[in-house]
Simulated scan of single mutants.
Amino acid sequence: MADLKAAFEQAQKDVKTLTKRPGNDDLLFLYAHYKQGAEGDVNGSRPGMLDMVGRAKYDAWAKLKGTSSDAAMQKYLDKVAALLQSHK
């Protein structure tokens, strides 16, 4: 588990080195899996109708409810690895 956590932290640094901006779907995927891996299930209330970005982020994270932190971290790592191949 310590190895997964270390790789997760490294992936957070690696994703910032991308030279091309990923699409919105990829960004939402990364956001949701990061939050699920780092904090667990979504908390707080859903943002209002006028906060479309906040609402999209909340909804993406809420879809992962019940996913284990380890599973979310692994999917985050896999996505970052794929993005590093295609967006460098």
Results as ranks from 00 to 15, higher is better:
residue 68 S to C: 09
residue 31 Y to S: 08
residue 86 S to W: 06
residue 1 M to Q: 13
residue 1 M to L: 11
residue 76 Y to G: 05
residue 88 K to N: 05
residue 3 D to V: 15
residue 74 Q to V: 02
residue 26 D to H: 13
residue 10 Q to W: 10
residue 18 L to P: 08
residue 51 D to Y: 01
residue 29 F to Y: 15
residue 13 K to T: 11
residue 81 A to R: 09
residue 22 P to M: 06
residue 55 R to C: 00
residue 52 M to A: 05
residue 33 H to V: 11
residue 36 Q to E: 11
residue 39 E to F: 11
residue 73 M to G: 01
residue 54 G to W: 00
residue 24 N to M: 06
residue 25 D to A: 14
residue 68 S to W: 10
residue 84 L to G: 06
residue 41 D to G: 09
residue 2 A to Q: 14
residue 43 N to S: 13
residue 77 L to N: 14
residue 29 F to C: 04
residue 58 Y to G: 00
residue 16 K to T: 12
residue 86 S to P: 00
residue 79 K to Q: 12
residue 37 G to H: 11
residue 31 Y to G: 07
residue 36 Q to R: 11
residue 6 A to D: 13
residue 70 D to Q: 10
residue 33 H to K: 09
residue 19 T to P: 05
residue 7 A to N: 12
residue 72 A to P: 12
residue 30 L to Q: 10
residue 9 E to Q: 11
residue 30 L to P: 04
residue 59 D to L: 03
residue 50 L to R: 03
residue 59 D to W: 01
residue 56 A to R: 03
residue 27 L to I: 12
residue 26 D to R: 13
residue 79 K to A: 10
residue 37 G to M: 05
residue 12 Q to A: 14
residue 23 G to D: 15
residue 20 K to M: 07
residue 39 E to Y: 14
residue 17 T to H: 10
residue 44 G to D: 02
residue 80 V to D: 01
residue 53 V to T: 09
residue 62 A to P: 01
residue 12 Q to K: 15
residue 77 L to I: 15
residue 34 Y to H: 15
residue 45 S to N: 02
residue 35 K to I: 06
residue 76 Y to K: 11
residue 41 D to M: 04
residue 80 V to S: 02
residue 24 N to D: 12
residue 86 S to R: 09
residue 23 G to K: 09
residue 61 W to Y: 05
residue 64 L to V: 08
residue 1 M to G: 10
residue 8 F to K: 11
residue 85 Q to W: 01
residue 42 V to L: 05
residue 48 G to E: 01
residue 49 M to Q: 01
residue 55 R to A: 01
residue 43 N to F: 15
residue 34 Y to W: 10
residue 79 K to I: 06
residue 46 R to Q: 05
residue 70 D to G: 10
residue 54 G to S: 00
residue 87 H to F: 04
residue 40 G to W: 04
residue 63 K to N: 06
residue 88 K to G: 11
residue 28 L to G: 00
residue 69 S to C: 07
residue 22 P to L: 12
residue 5 K to T: 13
residue 45 S to H: 06
residue 75 K to Q: 14
residue 82 A to S: 12
residue 36 Q to T: 01
residue 44 G to K: 03
residue 22 P to N: 06
residue 4 L to Q: 13
residue 83 L to C: 10
residue 3 D to C: 11
residue 52 M to V: 07
residue 62 A to G: 02
residue 78 D to P: 02
residue 81 A to G: 04
residue 55 R to W: 01
residue 45 S to F: 09
residue 5 K to S: 12
residue 22 P to Q: 09
residue 23 G to M: 01
residue 63 K to D: 08
residue 19 T to F: 10
residue 73 M to A: 06
residue 30 L to F: 09
residue 1 M to D: 14
residue 81 A to P: 03
residue 72 A to D: 08
residue 45 S to Y: 06
residue 41 D to F: 07
residue 14 D to T: 14
residue 58 Y to S: 00
residue 6 A to V: 12
residue 8 F to N: 07
residue 6 A to N: 14
residue 52 M to P: 00
residue 16 K to I: 07
residue 25 D to C: 04
residue 15 V to M: 03
residue 1 M to V: 11
residue 2 A to N: 14
residue 82 A to V: 03
